[in-house]
């Protein structure tokens, strides 16, 4: 008999959900919007975190050698550096010619620049070794070791100082986005709870006369209350589905802009990779919001 009653209250909640028309629409919209904003700010925060992490990993130190240093000497240094496997991930040799082609390519093959270089008569660029660290934190150590090394007199320039500033800036941005993301998320969740609670309260308010009738014909409190709990859960579930679809749309549009910006691929890959976590988390949040709002709201009108 209890199962029968539970099934009936569920059916009734479902029917309320369908028959309420625009109130259902309004509640689901608000709830979806809240969930959407919360999950989007979470996803974007995660994306920026990942992009920054990726950028840090892409950063390298390049050591330029004086023009009188021979290629053989540079290869020897490269070999020596390669032995520090714990700290150094790779050492790549960029010859003067390669550096020039790269420079021209980076300046967009501007003919005036090519012309200017031709007029100088010789390649103004130096050969260099591009060093990547295993961990970004190791760069200061690597740089200081190179500066103390036997070949320190062959070095023209280490472009670490410039990179150091970028590192520091990245760190700052990273920390700031983390904090603002967290603060914004918290604010949105709070607003979402308030709005959802009020919308569901309005829905229940529109039913308040019916509570009296239900109790008069002998419905127990729990029997009157359960359909609204189920209704709240349904609002949550449908809102989660809407949110998931909206997020897919957003991911579809953002994806091209984030191509290759992070190790995980683009925004869409991130969305798909974390789909089940996202779905689970949202369901938990959405259904809890719906059920708790209903439970609180109905208490107000169910004075027995």
């Amino acid at each position: 008999m209890q199962m029968l009653k539970l099934w009936r209250t569920f059916k009734e909640g479902k029917e309320n959900f369908i028959r309420n028309g625009w109130l259902t629409f309004a509640t689901v919209s608000i709830l979806s919007l809240s969930l959407f904003i919360v999950s989007l700010s979470f996803l974007l925060g995660m994306t920026s975190q990942l992009i920054l992490q990726n950028m840090r990993e892409k950063v390298s130190v390049s050591v330029s050698f004086n023009p009188d240093v021979t290629e053989e000497k540079i290869f020897a240094i490269q070999k020596e550096l390669m032995t520090y496997k714990k700290e150094i991930a790779s050492v790549e040799y960029v010859s003067r010619d390669a550096a020039l082609t790269q420079f021209l390519a980076e300046s967009g093959n501007d003919p005036t620049i090519a012309q200017a270089i031709k007029e100088i008569g010789e390649n103004p660029l130096f050969a260099s070794l591009v060093i990547r660290a295993v961990k970004p934190d190791d760069y200061p150590l690597i740089v200081s070791e190179i500066q103390k090394s036997t070949f320190q007199n062959d070095i023209s320039r280490i472009n670490y100082e410039k990179n150091k500033k970028i590192f520091e800036r990245l760190d700052r941005i990273n920390k700031m986005t983390g904090k603002t993301g967290l603060a914004l998320g918290a604010i949105f969740i709070f607003v979402a709870i308030l709005i959802t609670f009020n919308t569901i309260r309005i829905t229940i308010y529109s039913h308040r006369q019916e509570f009296e009738v239900m109790r008069l014909v002998g419905a127990s409190n729990i029997y009157v209350r359960m359909p609204f709990i189920f209704e709240g859960a349904l609002y949550g579930l449908v809102a989660v589905l809407v949110t998931i679809i909206l997020l897919y749309g957003i991911a579809y549009y953002i994806a091209p802009f984030t191509n290759g910006a992070m190790a995980q691929g683009n925004f869409m890959d991130l969305y798909l990779n974390y789909f089940w976590y996202l779905f689970g988390g949202l369901s938990l949040l959405g259904v809890t919001l719906g059920v708790v709002s209903s439970a609180i709201a109905i208490r107000r009108y169910l004075k027995v």
Partner: peptide, 10 residues
């Protein structure tokens, strides 16, 4: 029917 449903009738 509601009056019977609340009573748990089949």
């Amino acid at each position: 029917a509601y009056a019977l449903e609340v009573d748990g009738r089949s």
